[in-house]
Design a protein around this nucleic acid. Structure first.
Length: 569
DNA sequence: ATCTGGCACCTG
DNA sequence: CTCGCAGGTGCCAGAT
């Protein structure tokens, strides 16, 4: 298709789609096409391992556009987009299906949610043309070409997510098993049975309390058993339990640690999610409102540190692990164009530089203050730190405070590339309206709307203030988290392109195997490690330029070449 | 028997 | 991990 969305050539029928796609990609060289499809899940996943260079993902882009147009969480299937275009009733999205996708599913009309009789190709062409028009309208409205960059990066994210789900994260079952056996005892013969070590700890816990048998997984029973032993426990949070000076507390803590490992990442988890030496989670691009990815199944985004020793490169290969250092404060410096804060973010340790400039060298205070400013913290001894920051970095603090104010007033904020935050709920708006009326009714009440957030009032007014402040903290943090996510997504897209351009060695080509907010892992043949390191740092610089333009702020990505993920930090 | 909310704890 | 943002998953307990 042409850039304006019109068809660039005649439709043709192919017998084996994957072969045809590979042929077109291989022959096109630099002029490789941008594939337009309903979604990577439906169209790209079945083609793998055939790779494409770039795409326009109608579902991901539809979601971005609808959100930008004020309809958050709108159905995003091809059929839904088509229905909006034609003024038809819009079908809800189908729940995510776990099917691995055969060739048929590409054009299966029921997956695409198109009305009977509507040809998929016709719908793709029409919806794409419409999206191109809507994107151009946003660019015209003053977002320059940044939203277009977001659309391209989000689509590229769809490719990466599908590829990583296909390739999987290298996972050594033997290392994982050795760890489980060491900590929990041998794997129970009967599936679902309680491992030896957990059973022992349960008995020891009961003995230490002099209690009848109870279930240590039950908060109610634990609190009751401790109570009967004369130990007051208000909750079973581990940091609460740790305060208690009694042998039973220690045993319970240990039980909870091991029980969690067993339940969340034990043998059952391994059976379900690890196949052929690969952990295969699904990634949900844009699954978090801020644009961060979510995971589906297996807890891809919460691999506990203790298990990272099981993530090991194949023989002859290595892992290049890279994470963005102090990403969010650097993003704030770039976003707000605060000259002073930018200076602290131009080099190595941002907090160190901040401490030297404003906190008499006290790094802890510098870090605490800046994090508190970004999250909207009010409690603790943070007041003086915030005051210092406000005085020294008025532009940066003004930026987050303006975002908070917009949220408190019920408004919408956006990421640097134009991804909007969700509007407040109807309930929130009702509460806010109630708060306004209460205030107007007060004879000597402060008329200023913002007074609601200062609390100090009882009952109803307090609840209004709380929810108002919560919304402010959300939008305050949203501008930073979502812009950081924009940057990471663009970096991912740039890196994918650079990795594809690397020469394929005898053992294969480096590929992305993990992405978690501001951290990536590339699995690479050993002799390609240096090239991958260079590709990562170059991609970070490129992403900074594309997303933030001309800024003195550095957003460094720090790569480390290792055999196992656990060695990386 | 199945669903849902609360709790707890893992990640950035 | 209490203080302040964003998530996922598993378990229990109570409701349906």
């Amino acid at each position: 298709m042409n850039e304006d969305g019109s068809p660039a050539g005649a439709a043709r029928q192919v017998r084996v789609l994957a072969e045809a796609v590979a042929e077109i990609e291989g022959a096109a060289g630099a002029a490789a096409p941008r594939w337009v499809w309903a979604s990577a899940d439906s169209a790209y996943a079945p083609l793998l391992p055939v790779r494409v260079g770039r795409c326009h993902d109608l579902a991901l882009v539809e979601a971005l556009l609808c959100a930008h147009e004020g309809w958050f969480g709108a159905p995003r299937s091809l059929g839904a987009a088509w229905a909006r275009l034609k003024g038809l009733p819009v079908p809800e999205d189908l729940p995510a299906s776990a099917d691995s996708g055969d060739q048929e599913s590409l054009f299966a009309p029921d997956r695409l949610q198109l009305p009977p009789g509507v040809d998929a190709l016709t719908a793709v062409v029409a919806v794409h043309a419409d999206q191109v028009r809507r994107i151009a309208a946003i660019a015209d409205a003053g977002q320059r070409n940044r939203f277009k960059l977001l659309v391209a990066a989000e689509s590229a994210g769809g490719l990466v997510a599908a590829e990583m789900a296909y390739d999987g994260l290298p996972w050594r079952v033997d290392v994982h098993n050795a760890l489980l056996t060491e900590l929990l005892g041998p794997r129970p013969q009967i599936p679902g049975a309680i491992p030896q070590r957990l059973a022992e700890l349960t008995v020891r816990l009961q003995e230490a309390l002099g209690a009848r048998p109870f279930n240590p997984d039950s908060h109610t029973q634990v609190i009751k058993a401790f109570g009967e032993a004369g130990l007051r426990l208000t909750s079973t949070r581990s940091w609460v339990v740790r305060e208690i000076d009694h042998p039973a507390a220690e045993i319970l803590i240990r039980y909870k640690e091991l029980s969690r490992l067993h339940a969340a990442h034990g043998w059952a988890w391994q059976d379900a999610w690890v196949r052929g030496g690969r952990f295969r989670p699904e990634y949900v691009v844009g699954g978090v409102v801020s644009g961060r990815w979510a995971g589906r199944g297996g807890g891809a985004l919460q691999i506990p540190r203790i298990l990272r020793g099981a993530v090991v490169a194949d023989p002859g290969w290595c892992l290049v692990v890279a994470d963005a250092a102090q990403l969010e404060p650097r993003v704030l410096a770039a976003l707000s164009r605060d000259a002073g804060l930018a200076r602290t973010a131009a080099g190595g340790d941002l907090y160190e530089a901040l401490a030297a400039a404003a906190f008499r060298g006290e790094r802890d205070k510098a870090k605490l203050g800046l994090l508190g400013a970004m999250y909207g913290q009010t409690s603790g001894d943070i007041g003086p730190l915030l005051a210092t920051l406000r005085r020294q970095y008025p532009a940066a603090m003004g930026y987050v405070e303006a975002a908070a104010r917009t949220g408190e007033e019920g408004g919408i904020v956006r990421s640097v590339l134009g991804r909007p935050c969700p509007p407040p709920s109807a309930e929130w708006m009702d509460r806010a309206e109630q708060g306004r009326q209460d205030q107007a009714a007060e004879p000597d009440g402060v008329r200023d709307w913002a007074a609601a957030r200062d609390g100090g009032r009882d009952g109803e007014g307090d609840a209004v203030g709380r929810s108002t402040r919560a919304r402010g903290r959300f939008t305050r943090n949203f501008v930073i988290q979502s812009s950081a996510s924009d940057w990471a997504l663009v970096l991912l897209a740039m890196l994918r392109r650079r990795l594809t351009a690397l020469e394929e060695s005898a053992s294969g080509r480096p590929h992305l195997v993990f992405f978690q907010h501001d951290e990536i892992i590339v699995h690479a043949p050993r002799d390609a490690a240096e090239a991958v390191v260079a590709a990562i740092t170059a991609s970070a610089d490129e992403a900074t330029r594309l997303v933030f333009g001309d800024t003195p702020v550095r957003l460094p990505m720090v790569p480390v070449v290792v055999d196992a993920y656990a060695e990386a930090k």
